[in-house]
């Protein structure tokens, strides 16, 4: 019970901070929309129907945007030495991970709630609405994977000399086993693939990696935070 209360306190602090400053959300939103505009000009000369490359565009935009948020979630802790204060509190390290993970997940999901409809409006011609439920499940699984391993790796990179420079180097290769099924499953939804069994293979792969990464983050967090 105490763990939930403590976790909620950390989460509430992050939410309040973001609600008052809105700095991460604003920059992420601008970034993701600009990325879409650039994609349009990069692909449109050769590809008539952008739905066919839609899945790749969507996930490249989201993955790179998530890097901004993951870095920010620890930069402000480090700058004012808030992290040391947090570590001095009698809080389990795993609870800090859980709170940060949920916070990152919440921010990324909020961003997608606004960015994905804009994306669909700009690029998707074919109707994917009958499969909307599956699409939301893919987004959910993708977000869990990104935030699970991202929270852990952001903490590591924040405590090194390179600081936020290191996160993409560590994060992107680790994310590939999640990104590949994510893109393939989304592509299936956008282009209305043939068999349902294909989709389920990718969903299982994502779910397995999500579970592995979140559990690894929860168990290993004790070793990466503080001294």
């Amino acid at each position: 019970m105490t763990a939930i209360r403590q976790g909620w306190a950390i989460l509430r602090k992050d939410l309040l901070l973001e609600m008052r400053s809105k700095e991460v959300f604003t920059s992420q939103f601008l970034f993701v929309v600009m990325a879409m505009v650039i994609f349009y000009f990069a692909f449109s000369p050769n590809i008539k129907n952008l739905t066919t490359v839609g899945a790749g565009m969507l996930w490249v935009a989201i993955t790179f945007t998530s890097l901004l948020g993951l870095n920010r979630s620890f930069v402000h802790e480090k700058d004012e030495e808030c992290l040391d204060g947090l570590l001095l509190c009698p809080v389990d390290r795993a609870t800090i991970f859980a709170a940060k993970f949920i916070g990152n997940f919440f921010f990324l999901t909020t961003l997608e709630v606004i960015a994905v409809p804009i994306f669909a409006f700009f690029f998707l011609t074919g109707t994917f609405l009958p499969n909307l439920g599956w699409f939301l499940l893919i987004l959910l699984l993708g977000n869990v994977g990104i935030c699970g391993v991202g929270t852990l790796l952001a903490t590591i990179s924040m405590n090194t000399r390179a600081r936020d420079l290191l996160l993409p180097v560590l994060f992107l290769p680790v994310m590939v086993p999640v990104i590949i099924p994510m893109v393939l499953a989304t592509n299936y939804i956008f282009t209305q693939g043939e068999s349902m069994s294909e989709l389920s293979v990718w969903l299982y792969t994502m779910a397995i990696f999500d579970i592995m990464y979140v559990v690894a983050g929860y168990v290993l967090y004790d070793f990466v935070i503080g001294d």
């Binding site: 852990l152 390179a162 680790v174």
Partner: peptide
């Protein structure tokens, strides 16, 4: 990117575990 010996070993071990997955 980490000069302190203990921290270097801990971070590398955590990343090594994740990478080996």
């Amino acid at each position: 990117m980490v000069s302190e010996r203990m921290k270097q070993a801990r971070f590398a071990a955590v990343f090594g575990i994740i990478a080996a997955l």
